[in-house]
């Protein structure tokens, strides 16, 4: 008699959350990375406010995208290495649901701090204020699918010893639509348009990714860990 699925799901969340809390320094790394890169842009482009303001929204998007790739590498690798993936697989619980829990936690720990940080970066670079709410909303809609694609890539490479560049090579082309529609939505608002279309498209992509991504992820894990 195995335990109910909800119990297993929240048990996994609780376990990983405790683990993250014990290593909370690492969790902050993507945020620090984002801040550093944001500082580099004015240094490279020059302090001229008008020039920075033009690229502000796009730069914020690229920074968030790159920063959210940083912690992907360990998403499943630790579970493969310490055998807890095996425990999940023999437990008779649907692996896709457990994987969805892991992706959710990854999103909460990596994407949410970046979303909170993004208006600060964008405003510091001189993006007009009217774009802020759209930027945050678009990020909220786009980051789940970025996390899902990242998780799929992490699952495919989980049994490899190292996968840093390969992971980015796999994820970045897949993240192109999210980047285009997300940055496009902000751009539309900045030139005075209505961002509904790109936002709806982002939402649609996000729903599809969240619905099917965990299944793909689970089969990739089964494959790479066998």
């Amino acid at each position: 008699m195995s335990s109910p699925l909800g119990d297993a799901f929240f048990g996994l969340l609780a376990r990983d959350a405790i683990g993250l809390w014990r290593r909370r320094g690492e969790v902050l790394n993507p945020v620090l990375f984002a801040l550093m890169v944001a500082t580099l842009f004015p240094l490279a482009l020059g302090p001229e406010a008008a020039r920075l303001a033009r690229v502000a929204s796009g730069v914020s998007w690229v920074i968030v995208l790159l920063a959210s790739l940083l912690s992907l590498d360990v998403l499943f690798r630790s579970d493969v290495e310490d055998g807890s993936l095996d425990a999940m697989r023999v437990s008779q619980q649907p692996l896709a649901v457990l994987v969805a829990g892991k992706i959710l936690l990854h999103w909460l720990a990596t994407a949410v701090p970046l979303i909170v940080l993004s208006p600060i970066i964008a405003l510091a670079l001189g993006m007009p204020r009217i774009g802020v709410s759209t930027l945050v909303l678009a990020l909220l809609l786009a980051t789940p699918q970025i996390s899902v694609f990242g998780a799929c890539a992490a699952a495919l490479t989980a049994s490899l010893h190292r996968s840093g560049i390969l992971l980015s090579l796999i994820v970045l082309p897949l993240a192109v639509p999210a980047l285009i529609f997300g940055a496009g939505a902000v751009e539309t608002v900045l030139v005075g348009g209505n961002p509904a279309q790109p936002l709806f498209l982002l939402a649609a992509g996000g729903i599809l990714a969240v619905a099917f991504g965990p299944l793909v992820c689970a089969s990739a894990l089964r494959m790479s860990a066998s």
């Binding site: 799929c152 495919l156 192109v176 639509p177 285009i180 494959m223």
Partner: peptide, 21 residues
Amino acid sequence: SLLALIGLVNLPIIHYSVTWW
């Protein structure tokens, strides 16, 4: 194989998004 499948599903979306962009 799995990545090729994911890629194929995304190819039209990427193409559409780039056209939109």
